[in-house]
Simulated assay, not measured.
Amino acid sequence: MKFQFRLAYYMFGLFLGGVFVIWFLKSKATDRGVEFCYFPNCRVLKDLRSKSLEIDTLAQRSIDQKLVTMDDVRNSLRYGDVDFDKSNKDYRKGKIYIIEGKTASNEEITITMVNYTNKVLLEKIEKK
């Protein structure tokens, strides 16, 4: 058999195998709500979202003044960026994390959270 035909058969089989794997993994992920988080930013945000949330008085004041909403905080915890230069430091028997996100009106906000073993404290919300 010529090299061209062997290459064509190989590429066709590789294509079918790739389609099968993508279809299989996608159906598994959507059925069970599985989220693939391998990068540090995604893993930290997923850990913060998975724990119960307590709101400090300073953060509650920002929410009460309608500077931000809880939807803005939730969206920042899903799509925001963790500032690792200022984060992951010991703070009040937990670890502090600084998350940069955006509001629904596309204004930049900075959220300060303290991650404990069983809960997360929303300490401060600031607009830039």
Rank of each mutant, 00 (worst) to 15 (best):
M113D: 02
N106R: 14
N118S: 14
E108V: 10
Y97L: 08
E100Q: 13
K95P: 00
M113K: 05
M113G: 05
G101M: 12
K119V: 02
K93Y: 15
G101H: 11
S105F: 07
T103A: 05
T103P: 06
I99H: 01
Y116I: 04
N106P: 03
L122W: 02
R92G: 03
V120A: 10
N115V: 03
R92N: 11
K95E: 01
Y97C: 08
Y97H: 06
M113C: 07
E108F: 07
M113A: 13
E100V: 13
D90G: 08
I111F: 00
D90P: 03
E107C: 00
I96R: 12
I98P: 02
T110V: 14
V114H: 01
T103W: 03
N118H: 13
I109D: 03
N115C: 09
E108S: 15
T117P: 09
D90K: 14
I111R: 01
T103N: 05
I99N: 02
L121P: 04
I96T: 08
D90N: 11
K119W: 06
G94S: 10
T110W: 10
I111C: 03
L122I: 05
Y116V: 07
T110L: 14
I98N: 05
T112D: 05
G94I: 06
K102M: 14
K93V: 09
N115K: 15
T112C: 08
E100D: 10
Y97Q: 05
N106F: 15
I96E: 04
E100Y: 14
E108H: 12
D90C: 04
T117L: 15
V114G: 00
D90Q: 10
I109H: 04
L121H: 05
N115W: 09
R92Y: 11
Y91I: 02
I96C: 02
K95H: 00
K119G: 01
L122P: 02
D90I: 08
I96M: 08
E107S: 08
Y97A: 07
G94D: 06
I111Y: 00
M113L: 15
T103D: 04
